Simulated assay, not measured.
Amino acid sequence: MDDARSAEQVRPLLPAGPGSRVLVAERRRLVDHLVRQGRYHECRAALELAPPHADAAADRRMASSLRNCVGTADVHQGRFRQAHAWFSDALRIGRQQGDPREQARATAGMGAAKWPQGRTTEAVAHLVDVVEAAARLDDDWLADTSTCNLGAIHDRQGWHEEALEYFTTVLAYAEKIGRSRMISKPLCFAADAHLALGQYTEARNLLRRATALAREVGDLPLRAVSLSRLGAAEHGQGDPRAAVALHREALSALNEHTSTALEMEVRSRLGDTYAATGRRAGARQQFRIALSLARAVDHPGSTPWRRPGCGTAEQHRAIASGEVRGRHACLCRWCAGVRGEGRGRTSPGSASAAGPGSQQCGSTTRPSQCGRGTSAAP
């Protein structure tokens, strides 16, 4: 299929069954389509074929750029250590070639890969450097992504008002760039901060727009995130029926390629809503399914939600399978749900309080002060 205009043009022409290989030459990158479908492993497989041939390209930036792309695909899959290795290699090549833009992109990737591993001080230092470099390079995309990560770090630390300032800046960059997907992401992040603050009306307004944009571009993971958080906003507004419907719609957007952490988030919120409406059996089922996703429990990026006394991965699998019954010591959100304790200590909308993807800064200072005396704001 040559000169494809869009994924929408190609999708009806693809074979329905497995076993067929299709070559699509399109005007935009194929990886964009794969990312919107949540097919990160296929995206990475496609990208992994390219670096060995990068030296033959006329564009000298290709070697570092491709490594940055593979690293980004690893971040999407939660493979943060592998991502960091790719970004480090891209930074090395960018320095050898004296390319400040590729160096900045690699540094931004290193920041995105480090903070989920608990290396928040280093991550903030990287991201602050990139925000400053983006201003010199007049690169709105770099400024957008790095500022968004800084906002996410603040949000996970509990500095929600400051996080909202970052996301307001990110939204301005995204609207200037004009890509619907880039606009939807800061809306979701900002809504999450509003949810944590109990500002459900503000969150709902942002998420309605984010959901419409995610549907417009056909981004399934982003649609699932926005729908689930919209459900949390409706839950907080006192409409659990609407919340359940939205959480179920979010589940319907998931597929076999969906990240485990995202599925855990959606099922945990649905479990919270079931528990709030007295549907204890349904709540326990959702929390058991979340616990059974052992890969996320073992995942290094999920460890920050553990608390003192939290069970091991093996204990979580045993609890999920029913091998461990009665009251057990684990304090995590999912085990509390299996015990029938509802949403435990988290707010209706806050997966970040104890959910997957929560990150803890190693410093006792605010993230903008970690390792620096200056603000991370651009």
Rank of each mutant, 00 (worst) to 15 (best):
Arg21Leu: 15
Arg21Trp: 00
Val22Trp: 13
Val24Gln: 03
Val24Asp: 05
Glu26Pro: 10
Arg27Lys: 15
Arg27Tyr: 04
Val31Cys: 13
Val31Ile: 15
Asp32Asn: 14
Asp32Gln: 14
Leu34Phe: 12
Val35Pro: 05
Val35Thr: 14
Gly38Phe: 00
Arg39Thr: 13
Tyr40Met: 15
His41Glu: 11
Glu42Gly: 13
Arg44Trp: 12
Arg44Gly: 15
Ala45Thr: 14
Ala45Asn: 05
Leu47Ile: 07
Leu47Met: 08
Leu47Cys: 05
Leu49Pro: 06
Ala50Glu: 15
Ala50His: 09
Pro51Trp: 04
Pro52Phe: 08
Ala54Ile: 07
Ala54Trp: 02
Ala57Leu: 15
Ala58Cys: 07
Arg60Gly: 03
Arg60Leu: 07
Arg60Glu: 11
Arg61Ile: 02
Met62Tyr: 01
Met62Pro: 03
Met62Gln: 10
Ala63Pro: 04
Ala63Met: 09
Ser65Gly: 13
Leu66Phe: 08
Arg67Lys: 06
Asn68Gln: 02
Asn68Phe: 05
Gly71Val: 08
Thr72Phe: 09
Asp74Gln: 07
Val75Gln: 15
Val75Met: 09
His76Asp: 13
His76Trp: 15
His76Lys: 11
Gln77Thr: 07
Arg81Phe: 00
Gln82Val: 13
Ala83Glu: 02
Ala83Thr: 04
Ala83Leu: 09
Ala85Glu: 10
Ala85Arg: 12
Trp86Glu: 10
Trp86Ser: 09
Trp86Lys: 08
Phe87Arg: 01
Phe87Asn: 03
Asp89Ile: 12
Ala90Glu: 01
Ala90Gln: 04
Ala90Tyr: 02
Leu91Val: 05
Arg92His: 04
Gln96Ala: 10
Gln96Thr: 07
Glu102Gly: 04
Glu102Trp: 03
Glu102Leu: 05
Gln103Glu: 12
Ala104Leu: 04
Arg105Asn: 06
Gly109Tyr: 02
Met110Glu: 10
Gly111Pro: 05
Gly111Met: 01
Gly111Lys: 03
Gly111Trp: 00
Gly111Gln: 08
Ala112Leu: 13
Ala112Asn: 10
Trp115Met: 12
Trp115Phe: 06
Gln117Gly: 00
Gly118His: 03
Thr120Ser: 08
Glu122His: 06
Ala123Met: 11
Ala123Arg: 09
Ala123Val: 11
His126Pro: 04
His126Asn: 12
His126Trp: 06
Val128Met: 11
Val130Ile: 06
Val131Glu: 00
